[in-house]
Design a binder for these strands. Sequence first.
RNA 1: UGGUCUAUGGUGUAAUGGUAACACUACGGUUUUUGGUGCCGUCUUUCUAGGUUCGAGUCCUAGUAGACCAACCA
Length: 561
Amino acid sequence: MSTEEKSLNFIEQIIEEDLKNGLSNDKLRFRFPPEPNGYLHVGHASAICLNFGLGIDYQAPVNLRFDDTNPAKEEQEYVDAIKRDVAWLGYQWDKECYASDYFQELYDWAIEFIKKGKAYVDSQTSEEIAKQKGTPTTPGTDSPYRNRSVEENLDLFERMKNGEFKEGTHILRAKIDMKHTNMLMRDPIMYRILHKHHHRTGDKWCVYPMYDWAHGESDYLEQISHSFCTLEFLPHRELYDWFLDQIYDATKIRPKQREFARRNLSHTVVSKRKLLQLVEEKHVTGWDDPRMSTISGMRRRGYTPTAIRNFAKTIGIAKRTNLIDVSLLEFCVREDLNKIAPRVMAVLNPVKLVITNYPEGQEEWLEAENNPEEAVMTYRKVPFSRELFIEREDFQEEANKKFFRLTLGTEVRLKNAYIIKGENVVKDANGNITEIHCTYDVDSRSGSGTEASQRKVKGTIHWVSIAHAIPAEVRIYDRLFSHESPDGNKEIDFKEFINPNSLEVITGYVEPSLQTAQNLDHFQFQRLGYFCADKDSSTEKLVFNKTVGLRDTWAKVESKE
RNA sequence: UGGUCUAUGGUGUAAUGGUAACACUACGGUUUUUGGUGCCGUCUUUCUAGGUUCGAGUCCUAGUAGACCAACCA
């Protein structure tokens, strides 16, 4: 009964208003239109969640359209990666489209433009054209070729298409207004000559449409009702509408472009160009490096589709410039992982613990909860023996009042096992601890129901049996940028920004149940953080990537004495 | 020396002329066989100045600040 009044964001309000004004719900259609010139990143994830989310909410189809109008930058590899990423996020597109599917229609329309005197061939250099274009504060001037005859334009444009000219010698321009306050309306370029192989159309074309001439028309051909893009395209809207005016058939849906602010994330870069630079300059191992903000990087890092979708939903949509703190993304990741990640024991910085009163050669397989958050609890067995590894930092000889873990003379519980008491330590010549000796209370086994097993001790620590533990490579990631992400459009030197300690590779020991860990399964190494298994083809070893740390307060508490 | 867009706690987003709220962060308390989780709480908000109105975060005007616009990129 209590249908919560959901507040609509401004995008939903636009749609609601259109529906109220007579647009039929079954005419709704959205699209996500990436250029296949790189991998998708967390910013695209927002756009994907917006468009596909609207599709789900309104039960409307969403097209996946590749904006492949520039063969110089686009590759099939990127098309494949984009499809994989959108699908991984959990969305299904209605039609898979390509701007290149429309090259013929666009060409035919361009001929009509010429015939109607709406377009002309300009034969100046790009420098001359740029000069005539003026600046945001000064008007442009007409090209000397602006008033060529229709016949000459038709002839020239056909010869451009037929490959008779070199790149840069001629372009087709829309004839609008060189003095327009919006620079995009100053006779924008519709076609340029590019003798490049296109990943889909091969060598069929050597004239390629520009974004502005292809995008709205693609929306129109696909009968997209709402075309959402980022705010930097806002000045393009006037041109989008002008092009549509020339070809629009009133019996059809006229697509509407609306803009929202792109999302910026602190401590990271959200720009394909900069991500490409990181890859090319080898600051990272590739587009799917777990430190990258790409969707494939986040996948390898262990972020889940649910977490990313919740993040997108939480940050919402608006029109103001923003810088979202990564801690919100990390919260979303923890929130999801807490529910689904099995708790397992692992020791990353081991020190040997010997239980002196535990029989030599004896082993027990103890029952352990997989995840206390589970609705129906499941269990696994973990091996216990006389010699264990524990985390080096879980032991201190001298007890601080706020230190709840193992010290000499105090009791602590080994998770899922027994209560032990620290007795003494063995040190090497340099005074480093090499072994800790302790005794255990045989009646204190977890779940045994004995009085001793009910006893409260102030700390619980984690362990693995040395004889049974499996060595694993563990990759600990830190933020790629230690302070703020480099911003602006100018060339940047990443060396000034990159955190040199963003990757640490260590060898840890994990409980044997992880031997069968599948690629990208999630785990909580108890008290250490969330991790995922990453199969590395170059090694037989188990490899784990640290996804995100736990929200840990002990360091803070202990530092306050 | 132009045009367009934007302005709500440290961060992000709501409030659609009628009690400024939700989440994150930070901090405190509590539960806990994870210093995790859960639960409870605290701190911190409408850019400025006018105007319209019984009433303005919301509408209007001006100012201020930020963003975008001069690729044969998208």
